[in-house]
Deep mutational scan, measured.
Amino acid sequence: GVRVRALYDYDGQEQDELSFKAGDELTKLGEEDEQGWCRGRLDSGQLGLYPANYVEAI
């Protein structure tokens, strides 16, 4: 996976979405899909989806 850092807070709206705060680091686990979602893993171990444009590569 690729380490990325959140640029903005994001509150997951669905069960399969991650929630994070600006500045949090997570691991991107795949390329974004056509809707702009990426699969990732928080350092807590939680897996889920997040909007790709909310993070930057570290």
Rank of each mutant, 00 (worst) to 15 (best):
L49D: 08
R39E: 15
Q46M: 11
D24S: 05
R39N: 08
D33Y: 07
D16N: 07
I58T: 07
D24R: 03
Q15G: 10
G36A: 04
K28C: 10
E25D: 05
L26R: 01
G40M: 01
Q46T: 14
E25I: 10
Q15E: 11
A22H: 08
G12D: 02
E56Y: 05
Q15F: 11
A57H: 12
G23Q: 04
R3M: 06
Q46D: 08
A52Q: 07
E31Y: 06
E32V: 12
G1T: 13
N53V: 06
Q35G: 15
Y10S: 02
L7Y: 04
T27N: 13
V2M: 15
A57W: 07
Y54E: 01
A57N: 01
Q13G: 09
N53S: 12
E34A: 14
L49P: 03
L49F: 08
G12K: 15
V55E: 02
T27P: 01
P51Q: 08
L47K: 12
F20T: 02
E14V: 10
V2F: 15
E31H: 08
G48C: 00
S19L: 02
E32T: 12
L47D: 15
S19W: 04
G1I: 14
F20H: 02
V4E: 04
V55G: 06
A22F: 09
Y8W: 07
I58P: 06
D11R: 06
A52T: 13
L49E: 08
Q35D: 11
D43T: 05
G1W: 07
W37F: 12
R39S: 12
C38G: 06
G36V: 04
L49N: 11
C38Q: 05
D33G: 11
C38A: 14
V55P: 01
D24Y: 04
A57R: 11
R41V: 11
L42K: 06
K21G: 06
L26Q: 02
Y8G: 03
A52I: 09
D16T: 14
S19K: 06
E32C: 15
G12S: 12
G40R: 00
Y10G: 00
L49R: 14
L47P: 06
R41I: 14
G12L: 02
A6W: 00
Q13M: 08
L29A: 05
K28H: 10
L29T: 11
E31L: 09
G12E: 05
E14T: 10
E32S: 13
L7E: 03
G23T: 04
A57Q: 11
G1D: 03
G48D: 00
D16R: 09
E32G: 12
T27K: 03
L49K: 15
Q46L: 09
Y50E: 01
A22D: 06
S19M: 04
D24V: 07
L47A: 13
L49I: 11
D11F: 06
L47Q: 15
T27L: 12
E34H: 14
R39W: 08
N53L: 15
R39G: 04
K21Y: 04
E17K: 12
G23W: 03
Q46P: 05
W37K: 11
A6C: 05
E34V: 10
L42R: 05
D11G: 03
V4K: 03
V55M: 09
L26W: 14
E31T: 12
L42P: 01
Q15I: 13
Y8T: 13
F20K: 00
G48V: 01
V4I: 08
Q46G: 08
D9V: 01
L42C: 10
G23F: 03
G30A: 14
Y50A: 03
G48K: 01
L29Y: 13
E14K: 14
Y54P: 01
S44T: 13
G12T: 07
P51D: 03
Y10A: 03
L47T: 15
A22M: 10
G12H: 07
N53D: 03
P51V: 03
A22N: 05
C38Y: 02
D43V: 11
L26G: 01
V2T: 10
G40L: 00
Q46Y: 06
A52P: 05
E34K: 15
G45I: 00
R5A: 07
D11L: 11
G30D: 13
E31Q: 14
T27Q: 10
G45Q: 04
E14I: 11
E32K: 12
R41H: 04
E17N: 06
L18V: 04
R5Q: 09
L7H: 04
A6D: 00
Y8N: 07
L29G: 02
V4T: 01
I58M: 08
S44A: 08
G1K: 15
D24F: 02
Y50W: 01
L18I: 11
L42N: 08
Q15M: 10
V2Q: 09
E31V: 12
A22K: 12
Q35H: 12
Y10L: 07
G23R: 05
D16P: 06
V4F: 14
G40K: 00
I58C: 07
L47V: 13
Q13S: 09
G45V: 00
G23H: 04
E56N: 09
Y8Q: 10
L26K: 01
R3A: 03
K28F: 14
V4Q: 07
P51W: 03
G23A: 05
L26C: 00
D9R: 07
L49S: 11
D33C: 13
D24G: 05
E34W: 11
E31W: 06
G1H: 15
R3P: 03
E56T: 11
E17V: 14
E14N: 08
N53P: 13
V4L: 06
D9H: 04
G30H: 05
Q13N: 11
W37P: 02
K21H: 14
R41A: 14
Y54D: 02
L7M: 13
Y10K: 03
D9W: 00
A6K: 01
Q13D: 06
S19H: 07
K28P: 06
D9Y: 00
G45H: 01
N53E: 03
G30I: 04
D43C: 07
L29I: 13
T27S: 11
S19T: 14
A6P: 00
V2I: 15
A57E: 15
E34S: 13
A6G: 02
R41F: 05
Q15L: 10
G23K: 05
Y10Q: 05
G12C: 07
E32H: 15
R5C: 13
G40N: 00
G23Y: 06
A52K: 12
A6V: 02
Y54F: 07
D9T: 12
Y10N: 04
Y54V: 10
G40E: 00
Q13A: 13
Y50R: 01
G40P: 00
A52R: 06
Q15D: 08
A22G: 07
E17W: 10
E31D: 06
A6R: 00
G23L: 04
E34N: 15
A22I: 09
W37Y: 11
N53G: 06
L42D: 06
E56R: 11
E32R: 13
L29P: 00
V4H: 04
A57P: 15
Q15T: 08
K28D: 06
E17T: 13
V2P: 04
P51N: 05
A52W: 06
L7F: 03
L49H: 15
Y54S: 13
P51H: 07
Q15P: 13
D16F: 13
D43N: 10
R39M: 11
C38I: 06
G23P: 00
E31N: 10
V2E: 15
L29N: 03
P51L: 09
R5M: 09
G23C: 05
R41Q: 15
E32P: 13
W37Q: 07
L49Q: 15
Q35T: 13
Q13W: 04
D16G: 14
Q46S: 09
T27R: 05
S44M: 03
E32M: 12
F20Q: 00
L26F: 15
E25W: 14
E34R: 12
R3Y: 02
E31F: 04
Y50D: 00
E32N: 02
E56I: 06
Q35R: 13
L18Y: 01
L42W: 00
N53A: 08
A52Y: 05
R41D: 00
Y50I: 11
Y50S: 02
L29F: 11
W37S: 08
K28N: 12
G48I: 02
L7W: 02
D9G: 07
E25L: 11
